[in-house]
């Protein structure tokens, strides 16, 4: 794990393998990274917004739990974005298959599940709060 972290910060290592690809491929890879970075930043922003603008929820500290989960998810997305970018760049240079990843599916499931839970919480609040 430390090896791959070191590799993220060492561009020479990345450039030492394979051959230089068409720069457009590298730019496309870079834009994909940026899209993931914005996804991560949006999750971080969402967590901060939940902490600041959501009224206190019936369950104690539920608001803070949602905020922290979103913040941690955002950080994980950013870290994973670099890792995926580096592995994709390496695969492009070596002419290998691009790395497959379960991460988008897992993130989608997590976000969908969170949304369903919130819908349930809102409904319960609407029915029980009257």
């Amino acid at each position: 794990m430390w090896e791959s972290i070191r590799r993220w910060f060492d561009p020479r290592e990345l450039r030492s393998v394979g051959s230089t690809p068409d720069y457009r491929f590298s730019l496309a890879n870079e834009r994909t990274f940026l899209a993931w970075l914005r996804t991560g930043l949006a999750l971080v922003g969402g967590g901060l917004a939940v902490a600041q603008f959501l009224p206190p929820l019936p369950l104690r500290h539920l608001r803070e739990v949602i905020a922290v989960v979103l913040l941690l998810l955002g950080g994980a997305v950013a870290v994973r974005a670099v890792d995926h970018w580096a592995r994709t760049e390496r695969a492009i240079r070596l002419g290998e298959e691009l790395p497959a990843s379960r991460f988008p599916a897992l993130l989608a499931l997590a976000v969908g599940l969170g949304a369903l839970l919130l819908v349930a919480a809102v409904l319960v609040d609407a029915v029980g709060g009257r």
Binding site: F9, E64, L71, G74, G75
Partner: peptide, 28 residues
């Protein structure tokens, strides 16, 4: 593509996430 910008920028996002967690926990 100097390669170092991307990890640095992602590190910035992670730092913001950590700062956010600290801020939320402080508010408890």
């Amino acid at each position: 593509l100097d390669g170092r910008s991307l990890p640095a920028v992602a590190l910035g996002a992670v730092a913001l996430a950590v700062l956010g967690v600290v801020l939320v926990l402080r508010g408890l």
